[in-house]
Design a protein around this nucleic acid. Structure first.
Length: 213
DNA sequence: ATATCGATGTTCT
DNA sequence: GAACATCGATATG
């Protein structure tokens, strides 16, 4: 028999916990992006935790700005940022209102609507690459700053929600250093992924770039 | 498979 | 100016 997909979004209490608890608990959950052409479903396979006030790697570390304001608000909302001049990345805000911690969604498996992502993800050579990496994930789901602040606990007609799905057993969860984070913040093993999943992005240590001119 | 490099624009020093 | 929670194209093993 075919299991019916969950219809109830994760409650706000799910996100109102320490970010290091929430991050591994998100693995295996399904993110639903509603588009005019139909839903896109993504099973999360890789995430990273950013622990605001204590974390030099976090966008919230130096305090609230117009860009990161959503991180300082209530849990269960989306923080979207624009980076490297051309990409977006997507986070879920965790902890109580004011805590400014969040989980970066780094990779996942598209389980429905792969065809709807193809126009934006022409470079993907196979389905496993559609959302392999944080900017690829956001591109596949058509996420930009217009969705900053979206409440994923509200359910339809919200453009984004996280459905309950099957959580990943602890013995299938791996963790290690965060990708692309330099300095003190790079030492924390706050990247979490599902063992042996082919949609997890390759680890790349932070590399300072040579200046031109 | 890994390594290097250019693209772009916002944020922060 | 410099850095940036990155990616895609290209070169090479």
């Amino acid at each position: 028999m075919i299991a019916a997909p969950d219809r109830t979004p994760l409650p706000r209490e799910f996100f109102d916990r320490p970010v290091l608890e929430v991050a591994p608990d998100l693995l295996g959950r399904t993110l639903v992006r509603s588009t005019p052409d139909g839903p896109i479903r993504l099973r999360l396979t890789e995430v990273e935790a950013y622990d605001g006030p204590n974390d030099p790697g976090s966008h919230a570390y130096r305090g609230r700005t117009a860009r990161n304001a959503v991180m300082f608000g209530p849990p269960g909302h989306v923080y979207v940022y624009f980076t490297y001049g051309m990409w977006h990345c997507m986070n879920l805000v965790c902890g109580p209102d004011g805590m400014a911690s969040a989980v970066l969604l780094r990779a996942g498996e598209i389980t429905e609507g792969a065809g709807l992502t193809r126009t934006r993800r022409r470079a993907a050579r196979n389905d496993k690459e559609l959302a392999k990496g944080p900017a690829r994930l956001a591109t596949a789901l058509d996420i930009d700053r217009a969705l900053d602040g979206t409440d994923v606990c509200a359910g339809p007609p919200s453009p984004l929600s996280i459905l309950t799905g099957t959580p990943t057993p602890d013995d299938q969860v791996r963790n290690g250093p965060r990708t692309g984070v330099s300095g003190e913040g790079g030492g924390h093993p706050w990247r979490f992924w599902i063992a042996n999943d082919p949609t997890v992005s390759p680890y790349r240590a932070h590399k300072p770039r040579r200046r031109s001119t």
